[in-house]
Computed example of a mutant assay.
Amino acid sequence: MSDWKLPWSGACLCGRVQVHVTEAPVFASACHCRACQKLTGGAYSLTLMLPASGLSVEGETEIGGLHNPVPEHHFCPSCKTWLFTRGIADGQFVNLRPSLLDDGAWVRPYADTYVTERLSGAQSGARIGYPEFPPVEDYAELMSGYAREGVRPD
């Protein structure tokens, strides 16, 4: 845990919602699907997948985005910043937007997802790419690879 330099803190754009990370991420990815492009207003959505118990939130959030019960996209009700997504792998994980972190400049995705919908010229620096989401049977190896080779905070 020491090589991750935890805990981390962060906030939405207006600061009304604070996040605190106490457990190391298990995976980092960049999703290039059209929904993530529209939710972020960018070329892709950068994600740190954390154990659900490793994220605490201060402040109220609202469900937005696709308004699905699973996954739940949580936003700040004031500034509308997309904060995190709950409901990953039956609630075991949460996907945090690392741009919320006070220091998230170190984050680099290990894998790209939905490269079939990637905007031309959009490169994330990921080592691996998947046409859509990785098959469930690939996640153990992806998490293992990220544990060995994933970028850590400076």
Rank of each mutant, 00 (worst) to 15 (best):
F133P: 01
W4N: 10
A24W: 00
R97I: 05
S78D: 15
H67D: 11
T40R: 08
Q123E: 15
Q123P: 09
G125S: 12
E58P: 06
S56Y: 07
L55C: 01
A126N: 01
R127I: 07
H67T: 13
T61E: 04
E132M: 14
S9C: 15
L48F: 12
W82H: 08
V151W: 07
F75V: 08
V70G: 06
E58S: 15
P153S: 02
V26E: 08
Y146L: 09
G65S: 10
F133R: 00
T81K: 01
A11G: 10
G15L: 10
G121H: 02
R86Q: 10
K80E: 05
Y130H: 08
P98M: 04
H74W: 11
P135K: 14
N95Y: 07
R16S: 12
S53T: 15
Q92M: 04
I88V: 12
Y130R: 04
R152D: 09
E72D: 09
E60H: 08
C12Y: 06
H32Y: 14
L48R: 05
Y130K: 04
L50W: 02
S144T: 14
T81S: 15
T40Q: 13
Y139S: 10
C76P: 03
S124F: 09
N95L: 12
L13Y: 15
G104I: 00
P71R: 04
P77A: 05
G125Y: 13
R108W: 00
